[in-house]
């Protein structure tokens, strides 16, 4: 295969990177781990003329807890950085687990959090769990920084609401009251398979009553989506198999999947039902977020 020609820049600062992105406009793309971008360029799905490498921006690789802010994940962190992060293992094991399911080891060692979000692939594995945990992203552009809710990043397959000059620099998981969370990826083989359905949930359960719930679905719509009716249904309910089953049924009504070679829309819809139920059960029983 052949990687078409492009110009390459490796700026020393985020500001410089944003400036280059602004200067070149839609002809330029950010290069991080390359696991998605380089493959898509070889397949000519994407044809950037300029790549802006962020390899020198080491400040974007930290994963730390900032009191008052939450857990801050640098966007250049690889999936395996998430898997191995002590902070995440302690505070949000579900994120480490979701990162571990994303792909095989070599890809997890290169593919980044920022890439997994900004590629806006509907089946991406990190966005659902981030959304379930009410994460925000910090983006930096030529005009400065702003933050937005993670679920507001996505505009469609391969499309985000970021402007051309903006780079995702951080994902922030705010402190929260959720008592449990979980992400289930349903793929068709043990590794190296895109999610047919991905379901992430976070619940706040006290005295066996669901005080709060967030449900996010991947691979079943043009973007990762919240199952808001399901969340509303769950609030205030006592935990029972019936309630969780009913939640699954409601969630399956909240997705708009497509049919492709991996699965039909009908199958995906029913799998949303099954895995919403199972993800809720696991989040409640496992007792960790």
């Amino acid at each position: 295969m052949y990687l078409p020609d492009f110009e390459y820049y490796a700026p020393d600062s985020i500001a410089e990177a944003c400036k280059l992105l602004s200067q070149f406009g839609p002809r330029a793309k950010v290069l991080a781990g390359g696991t998605d971008l380089i493959a898509k360029m070889k397949n000519e799905v994407l044809k950037p003329e300029i790549l802006i490498s962020i390899k020198k921006l080491d400040q974007m690789k930290k994963i730390e807890y900032v009191p008052g802010k939450g857990v801050v994940i640098g966007a250049r962190s690889t999936h395996n950085d998430l898997v191995n992060s002590k902070v995440l293992n302690e505070k949000y094991l579900s994120i480490s687990e979701a990162a571990h399911q994303m792909a095989a080891n070599q890809v997890r060692n290169a593919g980044t959090v920022g890439g997994n979000i900004s590629n806006a692939v509907p089946s991406a594995d990190l966005p659902p769990i981030f959304i379930a945990l009410n994460a925000a992203v910090k983006v930096t552009g030529v005009k400065g920084e702003r933050s937005l809710a993670l679920e507001d990043v996505f505009a469609g397959p391969g499309k985000t609401n970021l402007t051309q000059d903006e780079i995702i620099t951080e994902v922030i998981i705010p402190d929260q009251k959720m008592t449990g969370s979980n992400y289930i990826k349903f793929g068709l083989r043990g590794a190296g398979a895109l999610a047919v359905v991905g379901v992430a949930v976070a619940v706040q359960v006290e005295n066996n009553v669901i005080k709060d719930a967030r449900v996010a679905l991947g691979a079943v719509a043009a973007t990762p989506v919240r199952a808001k009716k399901t969340e509303e249904f769950l609030k205030g309910k006592k935990v029972s198999d019936e309630v969780l089953a009913e939640a699954g049924v409601i969630a399956s009504g909240e997705c708009k999947p497509i049919s492709d070679v991996r699965a039909s829309a009908e199958y995906r819809t029913d799998m949303v039902r099954v895995f919403t139920k199972r993800a809720l059960r696991a989040a409640i029983d496992k007792g960790h977020v």
């Binding site: 290069l31 390359g34 380089i38 390899k55 095989a104 060692n109």
Partner: peptide
């Protein structure tokens, strides 16, 4: 994974997805 190499002597990556300049 046929092109696997160890980055920094310990981290397996696919060398087909990494640029030489990187």
């Amino acid at each position: 994974g046929s092109c696997t190499v160890l980055l920094d002597g310990k981290t397996p990556i696919n060398s087909c997805l990494m640029l030489a300049v990187e």
